[in-house]
Design a protein around this nucleic acid. Sequence first.
DNA 1: AAATCGGGGGG
DNA 2: CCCCCAGATTT
Length: 361
Amino acid sequence: MNQIININSFHKNLLSWFDNHARILPWRQNPHWYKTYLSEFMLQQTQVDQVLPYFLKFYHKYPDIYALANLEEQEILRQWAGLGYYSRARNLRKASIKIVKNFNGNFPETIKDALTLPGIGIYTAHAILSIAFNKPYAVVDGNVKRVISRLFTINEEITSIKALKKITPICDFLLNKKYPSKHNEALMELGATTCTPINPDCQSCPVNLFCKANQDNAVHLFPVRIPRKAKRNVFYYTFIIKHNEYFLLIKREAKGLLASMWEFPSLEGIEKGYSQKKLLKFITNDLGINGKIDHIYKSIKHQYTHLSASYTPVKITADSKKQTFEMFPDWKWIKPGELSQYPIHTAHKKITRNLEIETKG
DNA sequence: AAATCGGGGGG
DNA sequence: CCCCCAGATTT
């Protein structure tokens, strides 16, 4: 720690600010550990505004841990579709099953037990135990890291392990042991609403008098960050394969990108511009379907964290509904109206909208 | 320690 | 277009 701060004054300013400025969020009303648990899974690497509709839907449909534990994987993926990071949905289900089986339906109140739950790491364990059970564990999330990096002018690159090892003990020291729940939420709230990445509102910050970066007029220099590596380009041909009113939908592998999500069968390449001959060869030789290319549509772009993807829809008319595909974990010939019964990832959902597959077929 | 895993919103 | 976000897990 490179500066001495009046810890009591720090706590007082932070908590009174939170009392006056806390956003009204559904998981903060009539608090219960289940709400904290569900919201924390969704909030991993995802902003509040994006989580809100999903939290409301899930809480309404699955009001307790037993409802979640009873879900099929396919169904929780379907409900989660569009929120991203789908391993969270699988882990939420597995963790819920474990809570019912091993902990009698109650969230385990020790760090050691909480960390045995899939999808729950240090941050989420600390968050649930502090926010829902008022246990004295400090949280270190993206918001807190940014706030601390400014308060104490942390020079380590913010995503590095070095930075985390420097920031964690500071958070442990700063933690308000009397009000850990409010303290943690307040620090995260401060980062989300005031100590923002760009144009932070230092004037209205309750702890600006304790902020080294603010004193040095150097808030814009923190957190320290190095540019990311360039994204890889990926090009997909996405085949809408029709036979009468049916078209082919397949399930992705259980590992890797968009694991176990459903989509139209696709050909992946690292370069653009496959010939029609090559596309038809994929259909005939790899899928074993005889048919013809009806139309090649304009491609759509979709950005992933590490990929810059382009999807080119290709409409195929098949001679028959072939029923065996060794290359897919699962598949189904479905009618357009049945599309909503499957967990479809966002890029392919865009394609169904562009091609108006749900309505026109 | 680095890579992977989604998607949306903001500058 | 690039940036970031109530991180966890695998390599």
